[in-house]
Design a binder for these strands. Structure first.
Length: 271
DNA sequence: CTTTACGCCTGACGGC
DNA sequence: TGCCGTCAGGCGTAAA
């Protein structure tokens, strides 16, 4: 499931091979993603050069003269670079054929992802305009989490996964960061001290950094741009490990649905 | 404002 | 073996 580390891994791998290239042709085999791929995406992108590739939360932003393509990988999306002559497989919904013979190919079996075109400033896009700070910026710190959580009764895990609080933390890494910080995922967000939120902010950054360093987590569908899986799934401490021993203390990890998401924690290490 | 539930979608899995 | 029900889940949206 692509979260911030998977999207950032994709961005870093694509950037040197995509930026500066001209898009010769956009082929949309299946426009029915989360929102329909708009016809103007192909119309505007064809013939233009990609001038940059940025990330905001889990969105990739490919800029060109006159606009920006927003790409979201949803649950099962991946972007790979291959030869334009490679035959498309199942769920390969969109190709960007480039001027050097490469092809940027978007695959997404469940079609929860998106590919949109936006002609204004990216920060003004409705999907981006209300996002909270990026985890790796100075604006994200324990004091911010503490301040924003006052009066909130929802579980800290749900709070941490709220994109308006911090951008890009999804279910897997919320579980991992709370484990690392020793905080029970079900604890009401408003009842956690500033000191513990400092530890949580640090843990979020550390967990995300480690996963980016490993090329992300591949559970089912996510692959890197060369088709290889990420390596971080071998280092997950909680996710998908309910009932298994805690890597730190050996106690059996507990699992429960919190905020409609599978949640795993150690009953001894997390309070 | 916050919180909760729903739905989009396919593939994997378990039960019979 | 095959069919079918259930589940997973990012995240926008609607409703409470």
């Amino acid at each position: 499931m692509p979260e911030l580390p998977e999207v950032e891994t994709t961005r870093r791998e694509l950037e040197p091979r995509l930026v500066g290239r001209r898009v010769k042709r956009v082929v949309v085999r299946e426009p029915r993603l989360r929102w329909p791929v708009p016809p103007e995406l192909a119309a505007r992108l064809e013939g233009r050069r990609i001038t940059g590739l940025a990330r905001r939360a889990k969105y990739l932003l490919a800029s060109a003269r006159g606009g920006t393509a927003l790409i979201h990988l949803g649950m099962t999306g991946s972007l790979r670079l291959m030869s334009s002559s490679d035959p498309a497989g199942p769920h390969d919904h969109v190709d960007w054929r480039l001027d050097d013979g490469q092809c940027l190919r978007y695959r997404d079996p469940r079609r929860f992802g998106a590919m949109l075109w936006w002609e204004g400033a990216p920060a003004r896009h409705p999907l981006l305009s209300r996002l909270g700070p990026e985890p790796f910026t100075d604006a994200f710190h324990g004091g911010w989490l503490h301040e924003r959580s006052r009066g909130r009764r929802a579980a800290v895990k749900s709070f941490l996964m709220d994109g308006r609080i911090v951008a890009g933390v999804g279910n897997i890494y919320a579980n991992e960061a709370l484990f690392e910080a020793g905080i029970h995922p079900g604890r009401p967000a408003g009842r956690i001290s500033r000191e513990r939120y400092e530890r949580l902010a640090d843990a979020v950054r550390r967990i995300l950094s480690r996963s980016i360093g490993a090329g992300g987590t591949s559970f089912r569908d996510y692959v890197r741009t060369d088709g290889e899986p990420g390596r971080y799934q071998t280092r997950l401490m909680t996710y998908d490990r309910a009932g298994k021993p805690c890597v730190r203390c050996g106690a059996a990890l507990r699992g429960r649905i919190i905020g409609q998401r599978s949640t795993v924690w150690c009953p001894r290490c997390q309070r």
